[in-house]
Structure formats: structure tokens, C-alpha cells
Simulated scan of single mutants.
Amino acid sequence: MIVTRRISRAAACMTVVGIAAVTAALSAAPADAAPGRSLRVEQVPNVGITVNDNGISGGFVANLAATATTPGTARLTILPWETACRGNLANARAAVTWRNEQTNRTDDAVFPVCRNGKPAPGPDVATGVGRISFTTTIIGRTDQAFTVVPGTGWFYR
């Protein structure tokens, strides 16, 4: 059974305006995150192998982590397997290429993966606000680490 009821033109307009406001709010890009907050990063991790004089010496998996710093800026860090910084990635560097999908601004950053046996804090990059897509590559010292599958993904800043 369908019940119909007449409503005033003003009530109908208010309903349409309310629906439009909710739709706009839901489709808007997320606001710039507060400083110090970890950002959710959707990604396929970087996967590779390490070599020494005897051949393949190991492998690695490394994720990108992003933390909000100042407005429109994010600190990028590579988080490899726990033991990798004490072994096969101790002297490796990460190369990250990123792009703000709203502004088309793009840039690169190269930084150490590890410091003193632990993941090193990476650089603060001025990404601007919006969805940031990226690709990561691990660069070994004197060709000792090779990316087999580049990391790729996105986060909102």
C-alpha cells in the first residue's frame, strides 16, 4: 500500500537542498589530516631480492608509510620486514615518485630505507591536499638489491 501526502513547495525545495548538501559532503575530498597523524595508505608493497658474491642472498617486502606533518605535507617512510634493516637493506635507499591527482603536481624523493638497524624517517614532501598516488623502488648499494615488483598505491593528504 502506497501512502501519498501533499507537501508544500517550500518543504520540497528544502528536501532537494538537503539531499544536494549531503551528496556534496559525501563526494568531497577528505580534509587535510592533522599533523602527526598516520595516513591510511592503500598499496601493493615493493617486493625484491638482494644479492651478494654468491648469488641471491635474500628477499624483501617493503611498504610505504605516510604521516601528516604541516598542512599539505607528508613524511614518507619505507617499512621493510623487521629484520631487513639489520641485514639485506641496511644500506639501501628508496625512490618514491608521487603525484597529486587533483593538481597534477608530481615529484620524486630518494632517501635511506634504514638507519641504525631500524626504518629511517624519510623526507617531508609538499604534496598538497588531495589523493596522492605513488610508486616505490628500492635501490641497493652497489647493485645489491633489486626491485622485482615496484610498490604502488595511494593515500589522501
Results as ranks from 00 to 15, higher is better:
Pro119Leu: 07
Ala68Leu: 03
Cys85Asp: 05
Phe60Trp: 13
Gly18Ile: 00
Thr106Gln: 13
Asp32Thr: 05
Gly128Lys: 01
Thr135Ile: 14
Pro45Leu: 02
Val41Ala: 12
Ala126Asn: 10
Ala12Ile: 05
Ser57Tyr: 15
Leu79Cys: 06
Thr69Ile: 02
Val113His: 15
Leu79Ser: 09
Ala28Arg: 11
Gly153Cys: 15
Pro123Tyr: 01
Ala90Cys: 08
Pro45His: 03
Thr137Glu: 13
Asn46Tyr: 04
Ile139Met: 04
Thr73His: 13
Ala65His: 05
Thr73Gln: 14
Ile19Phe: 03
Phe155Glu: 01
Val51Leu: 02
Asn46Lys: 04
Pro150Phe: 03
Pro30Met: 13
Asp143Pro: 09
Asn104Gly: 04
Val3Ala: 14
Phe155Trp: 01
Thr147Pro: 13
Pro121Ala: 06
Gly130Thr: 07
Val47Thr: 13
Thr106Asp: 11
Val17Asn: 02
Ala90Glu: 10
Met14Ser: 08
Val22Phe: 00
Thr15Ile: 14
Ala120Arg: 12
Ser38Cys: 04
Glu42Cys: 12
Gly153Val: 14
Ile19Ala: 06
Thr4Trp: 06
Val149Asn: 07
Gly48Met: 11
Asn54Thr: 07
Thr97Tyr: 12
Arg75Lys: 11
Ala145Ser: 04
Asn88Trp: 04
Ile78Gln: 11
Met14Val: 07
Asn91Ala: 09
Asp53Trp: 12
Ser57Pro: 14
Arg157Asn: 11
Ile49Tyr: 09
Gln43Gly: 09
Leu79Phe: 07
Pro112Val: 01
Asn54Lys: 07
Thr69Tyr: 01
Ala21Gln: 00
Gly72Asn: 03
Ile19His: 01
Val61Asn: 11
Ser27Val: 08
Ile19Met: 02
Arg141Met: 15
Cys85Ile: 05
Thr152Cys: 14
Thr73Cys: 12
Ala11Pro: 03
Val51Met: 00
Val47Asn: 13
Ala24Lys: 13
Leu64Ile: 07
Ala74Glu: 04
Val149Ile: 08
Phe155Ala: 01
Val44Ile: 15
Asp143Trp: 10
Ala65Ser: 08
Thr152His: 15
Trp81Asp: 15
Ala34Asp: 02
Ala62Ile: 09
Glu82Gly: 09
Ile132Trp: 03
Ile132Asp: 02
Gly36Gln: 01
Asn91Asp: 10
Thr103Ile: 03
Gly122Asp: 02
Gln102Gly: 12
Gly130Asp: 09
Asn63Lys: 06
Ser57Lys: 14
Ala20Gly: 03
Asp32Pro: 05
Asp107Leu: 07
Ser133Leu: 10
Cys114Pro: 08
Asn54Leu: 06
Thr103Glu: 03
